[in-house]
Structures are given as C-alpha cells and as structure tokens.
Amino acid sequence: MADVVQRRVGGSLRFPNRPSIIASSTIAGPMEGKGPLARWFDCVVEDDMFGERTPEKAERRFMRDAIDVALKNAGLEPDDLHIMVAGDLLNQTVTASFTAAEVPAPFMGVYGACSTSVEGLAIVASMVDAGFADVGLSVTSSHYQAAERQFRYPIELNIQRKSTSQYTVTGAGALVVSSGRGPVVVTEATIGKVIDMGIKDPNQMGPAMAPAAADTLYRHFVDTGRTPDYYDMIITGDLGAVGSSILRDLLQRRGVVLGDVYRDSGALMFEGVPGTGVGGSGCACAALTMGGLIYKKMLANEISRALVVATGALLSSLTWQQGESIPGVAHAVALEVQPGAAT
C-alpha cells in the first residue's frame, strides 16, 4: 500500500496520524513554585536538593519522578514504553542517561540545550506517527545548582546578576505520546536551524537565541500558511524579557506581528519572583510550561491551539572562555485539542 500521506509541508513536519499526548508531568523546584505557573505543576519540591548529596543526583531525582508521574498519569508501566527520549544540560547529558538506566525502555539521549524539551517531543511524535512506536515518552530536566556550577561559578560566590542574566529553572517535565486517541495531538513540528549572530556574552542568552527563534517561527508560518492569530497561545522557551522583545522586533521587520497570543516561558516562570533576573532558562523551563500551563489549559479546553518554540543556546563553558560566540537553535511544535477524546 503506497503511503500517499503528505508528511512534509515546506520545511516543516506534519503528523497525519495525529500522535496524541495522553499524559504530562511537571515536577518543579521551590523557586518555580513561587512563580505564577505553579498552579499547573503536578508537584513542587520544597528542597531543591531533593535530600541528595549532590545537585547532579538531585536533578536525576527530578527527572525520575517526572517519568514516574507521567506514566502514572497515563496509566502505564515503564515496560509499556517503546521509546524514551531524554535530555538535560549537564556534560554528556548524564542526567538523561543515568536516569534511563533505571527505566526499562529503549532510550535515546538528545542535546539541544534549553530547546531539548521540544526536540525530544518532535522526535517521539515523529516515531509514533510513523509507527515505529505506539507509546513514547519525552522528558527533560535542569537544575539551578547543577547548571550554575557547570556553566558559571560556585554557588556561594559573591556575584551580582547582570540586567540581562537569567536563572536556571529547577525541575523536570515529561510527556507521554501515544498512537491512540488522546486529548491533545501534535500536529506539526518545525525543526530549527542553528544560527550564530555573534553574541559572545553568556549573560545575554536571550539576544543570542532570539534570531534562531525568529527564523523557526517565520519558517513555521510560511510552511503552514498560518499567521500568529491561528494559535490561542504561542510560547517561546527561555528568551526572557529581553530576548522575547527582540524576537517581536525581528519578526515585525519581516511582517509577522506576534500580538497578544505570544508569551515567553522564561519571563512567565519567575514573574514577580525576586532575584531571578530577566527570567528562567534551562531545559525544564519550556518543559514545565508545556506540560503544565499549556497541556492543562488544553485539557480544560481553555485554549485549543498552541505553538511551543523552545530555544537553546549552544555554548559550553569552554567555548565562551575561548571567546567564541553563542550559536542558538529553536524547535517548534504545534499542539491542538482533539475534540471528544476522553481525558
């Protein structure tokens, strides 16, 4: 039987078999619990160290719990998973692989810096859509202390935040994607291209990533023939207040007006939380917003179409010390409520 289904629209991916997100989970740290997104989290852990001795172990606990809660919400056992795609910020994505060692599922580790949550979802949705997997799970995590000591300085060091600094989100978010009928479907994905506009200051992640987000969004609208108001909500990952303002500007210069439907997870995550700079960052930032705010608003039928664009700054502590600029990437997935599906 010839496959006549169109899976490619322009440069974007379309999923004709409508892979469904049947469950989400969001495990957040204490600072995130103080922000306005907290009411959509499954769990806020008051001890960011999760009772562990190292922040790296604590991050694994966040990811492990996110997997367990997602499977529980989906009514599945770990053995039911045909594929698990996971990623995080630590060197060699150790959180993902070490956590996967405890989960009996075929595993792929991915790295897209803070864009990983959408990258993972796009991969799992593609596999489910193509029939390589009936049930897949995508999970990502980040941890303030673990990221801070890898990318920046010791925690107790006296350091004044810059006016453009962001604060790494502590937490983990997972999504379970199934070929069966579910409440929310993944309809399209636009995979990002890496764009480097020469920003070198690691305190300016938003400005480093905004061009990639603008490129991905622009291509998404051209490929799908849509305009921003097609969506009830467009969310970027962690551009922060500065980066999202640049994104609006860049798109406006190309004739795309994002309007009121657009918000940034990083800016939302810590709105009104002191000491967090211009917003959150990290893999968990977009993951918590997607699995929390967006998924739950869709379950409640408050919104029916959403576009999530997770952004990643692809630097390492070595590259910036060597004076290299910071390449950015952004991946987008379009989500849609499936009317009449049991929740």
């Binding site: 506009m197 500065v242 640049i246």
Partner: peptide, 20 residues
C-alpha cells in the same frame, strides 16, 4: 550557519536597543 560580519553587526545593533 555563520553569518557574515555585516549581518552580525546589524543584528547586534537591533538587539542592543532592547538590552536594558
């Protein structure tokens, strides 16, 4: 992937107007 210096400089001018 790598943009030329002119394009980078142009972007950095746009971006710096947004940086507080």
């Amino acid at each position: 992937r790598k943009h030329n210096a002119n394009e980078q400089a142009k972007y950095q001018r746009i971006a710096s107007a947004h940086v507080p």
